[in-house]
């Protein structure tokens, strides 16, 4: 497994988050392809959840729109199967523990492998609870991606040592959403991570401008952007993909 490592190989990685099915899967597919065409190195695909407790209002809205439109886990798997006909960048799922658990963890991860998903991010599964999911992910060679927060402190090394795929460094306290300023001492966090593992780390939460993308990717191996992209879907709906393409290009160029 290697698609994830490869995407960090050449330069700084730009990681785009898109909620599946907002407002429909056709648009999601078009948005992913536009993002990739314009330089996105890895795509995080959100499987909607009714109660996304780690998300701010923008991504909460995307979850709600997608669920209202009738998105299900099975439809998302079919969508990825189709996407994989031409999209080759690494794809990781970002969803909540209950979506995986209720599907049957083994069945979920096995299907991830079959359709070409490279990793899973579950923001409500910390280090202490990862045994519910990580061993199954290892069995099917799907990376169980860990998050590190500004409050992680002495937990950073413990988490980093067992990390797989890439490490998601949360830039700021709170939920997802754009921020005018990121104050956390991210360099110290990345230094601790680099001291114990070679796995790449990317920074997410609050990044929306090219300047922030440049700054965050300089500190780490990449930048993750979600809410800023979802805002285009919120505003333009099915017309959003072309705006997302332009936006991704502006971000990638700055890195």
């Amino acid at each position: 497994m290697n698609r994830i490592a490869d995407s960090f190989n050449n330069n700084k990685a730009f990681i785009a988050f898109i909620t599946c099915g907002d407002p429909d899967l056709e648009t999601t597919g078009a948005a992913v392809r536009e993002a990739v065409k314009n330089g996105a190195d890895l795509i995080e695909l959100g499987i909607p959840f009714s109660d996304p407790t780690a998300e701010g209002p923008v991504i909460q809205g995307a979850n709600l729109r997608a669920l209202t439109a009738g998105i299900t886990t099975d439809k998302v798997f079919d969508f990825v199967r189709d996407l994989r006909k031409d999209v080759t960048v690494p794809l990781v799922f970002m969803t909540y523990a209950n979506v995986v658990f209720s599907y049957g963890t083994e069945r979920f991860v096995k299907t991830c492998r079959e359709v070409g998903i490279d990793g899973i991010i579950l923001p409500d599964v910390p280090f202490e609870e990862k045994e519910d999911f990580a061993p199954t992910c290892r069995k099917y060679d799907v990376a169980f991606i860990s998050l590190i927060a500004p409050t992680s402190g002495e937990r950073i090394a413990m988490i980093a040592r067992e990390a797989e795929g890439f490490i998601y460094v949360v830039s700021s306290l709170g939920v997802t959403g754009t921020r005018s300023e990121i104050k956390t001492d991210l360099k110290s966090i990345v230094d601790v991570i680099r001291g114990v593992t070679d796995i790449p780390c990317a920074i997410g939460f609050g990044i929306s401008t090219p300047e922030q993308a440049a700054k965050m990717s300089a500190l780490s191996d990449g930048a993750i952007v979600g809410s800023a992209i979802i805002k285009y879907l919120e505003k333009y709906g099915t017309e959003a993909p072309k705006y997302i393409g332009e936006y991704v290009k502006s971000m990638k160029d700055a890195m």
């Binding site: 910390p126 202490e128 409050t151």
Partner: peptide, 21 residues
Amino acid sequence: QNGRFGIHGGQYIPEALMNAV
């Protein structure tokens, strides 16, 4: 010790809250 009642319980929360709990 891990706050389990049989199979129930646990700490399924964002990493950001772990040190708080």
